[in-house]
């Protein structure tokens, strides 16, 4: 019997354990057929963990809003003062009005555009730079000192300098956003390169891959999980930097909207701006995770 003739039995999904491995070799795959206990559990029981998490999420959010309502409706004041804090109802009314006005969406749109530019440019520079720095020690030794000097400076501290550097206000805000996301992406990419299993590189070499092919087909995909960690962290910092920059300078953006609300004594708008920032931040990190899952089907 040739090796090729064996083990071509089309049993669906035997459990891939070493035991099953041996069984397949001996053409005794029947036991693998019998065991699929999960399939017989009732639907509700299987979905219970997810269901519970969902119910808990709802309860937790409802309790938060309820607490907010109680504190503001009763104008509670015990050192922390809720006297001027808008109630959920007031914010909801404001939101309804805001959603009808084009200006509110314009603020949100401009913020998103700034994030888009700053973040994408940061990723386009930081990822290749990180890959090259991780691969070539000389480049790493050369670039790291500058990175280490600039990295500890918070992006917000760059605001005045940025305004001087760039001809337009828009560019200076995008630059701040860029700075915020650049370093997390760069550092995570470098760390990812350092963690590539050398045996994978040796395997690729012995399969005939050239240096360039190894870079593209081994180092890059091996780094992807770290790169996406960097992108997720970078996106968070990008929002922090953007909002700060918008509050300090500019006439547009959701950060400006929130700060202006305070100046104009539109307290409900402060909460509305905050919630909008939170939702936008959540959506953007969700987008990154989605993109990551799409690019890395071997994970999850």
């Amino acid at each position: 019997m040739s090796v090729a003739e064996r083990a071509v039995d089309d049993v669906p999904n035997p459990v891939p354990s070493d035991a099953a491995d041996t069984l397949v070799d001996k053409q005794l795959s029947e036991p693998a057929l019998v065991r699929s206990p999960q399939a017989r559990k009732p639907w509700l029981k299987r979905k219970l963990p997810q269901l519970r998490a969902f119910v808990f999420a709802i309860i937790s959010l409802v309790l938060f809003v309820a607490l907010w309502h109680v504190l503001t409706e009763n104008r509670v004041s015990f050192h922390v003062r809720f006297i001027n804090v808008p109630s959920p109802k007031q914010v909801l009314e404001k939101a309804e009005a805001a959603f009808k006005s084009a200006m509110f969406f314009e603020h949100a749109r401009i913020s998103c555009r700034r994030i888009g530019f700053g973040f994408v440019i940061a990723a386009l520079i930081a990822i290749p730079l990180g890959l090259v720095m991780g691969r070539y020690k000389m480049i790493r030794e050369f670039v790291t000192p500058v990175v280490e000097v600039i990295r500890p400076i918070p992006a917000i501290a760059w605001v005045p300098m940025s305004i001087m550097l760039w001809p337009s206000n828009e560019e200076s805000i995008v630059f701040i956003t860029f700075l915020g996301s650049f370093f997390p992406i760069l550092l995570n990419t470098i760390a990812g390169m350092g963690a590539v299993d050398p045996v994978l590189v040796r395997a690729a070499q012995s399969l005939g891959a050239s240096e360039r092919q190894i870079f593209r087909k081994v180092y890059f995909p091996a780094c992807l999980p770290s790169i996406f960690t960097g992108l997720a962290v970078g996106m968070g910092v990008a929002w922090v930097s953007l909002i700060a920059a918008e509050m300090i300078s500019g006439q547009f953006g959701i950060g400006y909207f929130t700060w202006e609300a305070y100046s104009l004594v539109q307290y409900a708008d402060i909460a509305l701006g905050m919630i909008t920032i939170g939702v936008l931040g959540l959506l953007s990190s969700l987008l990154i995770r989605l993109f990551g899952n799409l690019l890395m089907p071997w994970k999850s």
């Binding site: 299993d197 045996v199 994978l200 040796r202 395997a203 690729a204 012995s206 399969l207 091996a222």
Partner: peptide, 20 residues
């Protein structure tokens, strides 16, 4: 002189590319 496809290598550690 260098690793090459004329010499197939099987390693002790698992060395399959996880993303493939």
């Amino acid at each position: 002189k260098a690793p090459g496809p004329d010499r197939g290598m099987v390693f002790q550690q698992y060395s399959l590319f996880p993303w493939m």
